[in-house]
């Protein structure tokens, strides 16, 4: 009475590419519930509620305008400072959120992961999605500011056809944040050192990306280094699409796309490998 049909087999060493897509698809309800939880729980019992999504980038933009715009006097390439900073910050915040929050996946969820199994990748995916909602709200703020400046004819800029690239840009940000986050979260299960690195690493990365300044302001070696930063082309293309100023290089965008997919691939592999035994080392 030996039957050989098993629905699943648990083995010590899973192949590096054994990715249970079926289980992932079955967990889509869980994914949406996680997104809902992440989104709802953050601003429960606050008076301003989701308004905080606006306040955060608004205040940062104000600070940037004073420090980098007024005091340091950094050029924004003919674009109103507020719109310029807000454009960069909206994209950057989405990346930073995805990266920072997913990099804590294993440590933050160890009590759940230690008690029940579901495809672990659901957790970082839900973070990327709930951050996307936050991005959406902040994008509305940017859009409002953008339209305001567009109508007040003091400035001369116009949107370009490249706005069609927007969904791809947003996707690339999510993919990159997810990929990096999964790599870091896997390493932190054993070596907590990475957490400290992340704390200021993302902060430093912000300054190495054209958020507060346009790429066109740099030249020589510095420019080459900045172009190697995969976030550069996303930020520049985003601004180019809206303002018509900035640098749009197709090869850079291609590089970023390749880089993001590569990071996502590596991240998924490492994450998948880690999820099986991380409870023993975390």
């Amino acid at each position: 009475m030996q039957q050989e049909s098993w629905t699943s087999i648990i083995r010590p060493k899973r192949s590096l590419f054994a990715f249970d897509l079926k289980a992932l698809l079955q967990s889509k309800d869980l994914l949406f519930l996680f997104v809902k939880r992440d989104f709802i729980s953050v601003y429960k019992q606050t008076i301003l509620g989701p308004l905080w999504f606006f306040i955060e980038p608004a205040l940062t933009t104000l600070v940037f305008m004073i420090i980098f715009g007024q005091i340091a006097g950094i050029e924004t390439g003919g674009v109103p400072q507020m719109a310029f900073y807000l454009a960069g910050l909206t994209c950057w915040n989405y990346f930073a959120d995805c990266f920072k929050k997913t990099s804590n996946t294993f440590i933050e969820n160890q009590h759940i992961f230690g008690k029940v199994y579901f495809p672990r990748i659901i957790t970082p995916l839900s973070i990327v999605l709930s951050s996307l909602i936050k991005f959406g709200i902040q994008f509305l703020l940017f859009l409002g500011v953008y339209i305001f400046f567009f109508l007040s004819s003091d400035y001369d800029f116009a949107p370009t056809i490249h706005l069609l690239l927007l969904p791809i840009l947003i996707m690339l940000i999510g993919i990159m944040g997810l990929g990096f986050g999964m790599i870091i979260s896997s390493i932190t299960t054993k070596y907590r050192d990475m957490r400290f690195l992340i704390q200021f690493g993302i902060q430093l990365w912000l300054y190495a990306s054209p958020v507060i300044y346009p790429l066109s302001l740099t030249e020589g070696k510095l420019r080459t280094v900045l172009m190697l930063n995969p976030m550069t082309s996303i930020l520049e293309t985003f601004k180019y699409a809206f303002f018509g100023t900035g640098t749009l290089e197709w090869w850079m965008l291609g590089y970023t796309a390749g880089f993001s997919l590569f990071i996502l691939f590596i991240g998924t592999l490492i994450f998948n490998k880690t999820e099986q035994n991380f409870m023993d080392t975390v």
């Binding site: 039957q3 087999i9 648990i10 010590p12 230690g114 199994y117 409870m279």
Partner: peptide, 16 residues
């Protein structure tokens, strides 16, 4: 191990 929270070092579990 049965509930897949952690993996085994050796051997296997077949589930139906």
């Amino acid at each position: 191990i049965l509930s897949k929270v952690t993996g085994p070092t050796q051997g296997e579990i077949k589930l139906n």
